[in-house]
Amino acid sequence: MPLTDDWITTPLTADLLRGALDLERTEHGLLPHRLPARARAQCADPQLALAEAQPSGVRVVFRTRATAIALDTLPTKRVYAGAPPRPDGVYDLLVDGSPAGRTTVSGGNTLTVDLATGATEHRAGPIGTARFTGLPEGVKDIEIWLPHNETTELVALRTDAPVAPVPDRGRRIWLHHGSSISHGSDAASPTTTWPALAAARGSVELINLGLGGSALLDPFVARALRDTPADLISLKLGINLVNTDLMRLRAFGPAVHGFLDTVREGHPTAPLLLVSPLLCPIHEDTPGPSLPDPAALGEGRLRFRSAGDPAERAAGKLTLKVIRAELARIVAQRAAEDPNLSYLDGLDLYGEADNARLPLPDELHPDAATHRLVGERFADRAFAADGPFADGATHG
């Protein structure tokens, strides 16, 4: 049945959205942000602005009898100059918690990025529509997970029956912060990023502050974590500090302590899990920065290489092995005063044997199968009966 203009249009408001920390009114509608305005004002980095406005983990949630739904959106699609075209962002539909549909939205704005120079070009495009029809009769809870890797302005929600907010289900809130892998880079869809998969297995409500290229121990991010209500918190730190060659070992340890101290100001006893980087062979022993491989770009492929020198470790440059050792040391040091702080070695989620079987396609980011592997392993360790996020491990 086609959607028509006489169907019900419901204003998109905060009570119909989950996973966003801020909502910005735009010319076209509502733009979800994963960092609050105060945090965004403290950093002009375009990479961070792009990452936090991509709604990884953000979903439109409502209760309805509708059998057909249309969500009008204005996406902004990334194009990397010289690289293969990226697929359109995916919208996942859940009905009463179960997968029930998947679609994309054509059109939208285009942001072209030149990886060699960092230059960008923005071209405006038309609004599109994500449609879901043939849904089951009767009252049901709907979740539309927005594309994890595509900035999405919400324009209108149209249905063939009224909608209402879903009452609080009493599920624990899991607040996670990490890099592009946590953000969902190269996952198949928004519900199959590794944090989304782990949240589903753990029956928790996810707030995903995975920020591609931007997990850099920024104080404003720590304050955002501090000020966000949550029952469970995890921080996956390290790889972006190597990617960007941002700091040396002397600064890294105190920065981690300060980040943890700030988070603890708002969540003094909540289970807090510090996760070190997954295996990334190009940076295990070689510092950053990470740069696009020009030879691969010349072949129309995107691949990264390490531009550092292993000899620079002596001067305090960071590698993943150095970071894992330092994070484990920091957790052990703080254990006496913070018994609810735990450490998870990223190699337990993706290590050498996994890399031999499921190599990183671009040398930095996992594919869809690896996202599933990491999500399952994280859930098995964190949400196990003896894990740091075991049911009942909510301390505020």
Rank of each mutant, 00 (worst) to 15 (best):
D5C: 03
I8K: 09
T10L: 09
D15L: 02
R18W: 02
A20Y: 00
R25F: 09
P32H: 06
H33F: 12
R40V: 13
P46L: 10
P55K: 04
S56I: 08
V60F: 13
F62R: 09
A66Q: 14
V79F: 10
A83V: 13
P87L: 11
P87G: 10
L93Q: 09
V95F: 10
G97N: 12
G101S: 09
T104L: 03
L115Q: 07
G118D: 11
G118T: 04
T120S: 07
H122E: 13
P126R: 13
P126S: 14
F132D: 01
G134R: 03
G138E: 06
E143H: 06
E143F: 06
T152W: 11
L157M: 10
R158N: 08
D160P: 08
P162Q: 07
V163I: 10
A164V: 04
P165Y: 05
H177T: 13
H177P: 09
G178T: 03
I181R: 01
A187N: 05
S189F: 00
T191H: 10
A198P: 03
E205N: 11
L209H: 08
G213A: 06
G213S: 05
L217H: 01
D218S: 11
R223C: 06
P229D: 13
I233T: 02
S234G: 07
I239T: 14
I239D: 00
V242A: 01
N243L: 05
N243G: 08
M247Y: 07
L249I: 15
R250G: 13
V263G: 06
T269S: 13
S276M: 09
H283R: 08
L297S: 12
E299I: 00
R301T: 05
F304P: 03
G308K: 12
A311Y: 11
A315H: 14
G316C: 09
K321M: 10
R324V: 08
E326M: 10
A328N: 06
V331P: 03
R334H: 02
R334G: 04
A336V: 12
D338A: 15
P339H: 10
Y343A: 03
L347V: 06
L349I: 12
Y350N: 06
Y350T: 11
Y350I: 10
G351H: 06
A353T: 07
N355G: 08
H365L: 03
D367K: 09
H371I: 10
R372F: 01
L373K: 11
V374F: 03
E376V: 08
E376C: 09
A384R: 05
G387F: 01
F389T: 02
A390L: 07
A393W: 01
T394A: 15
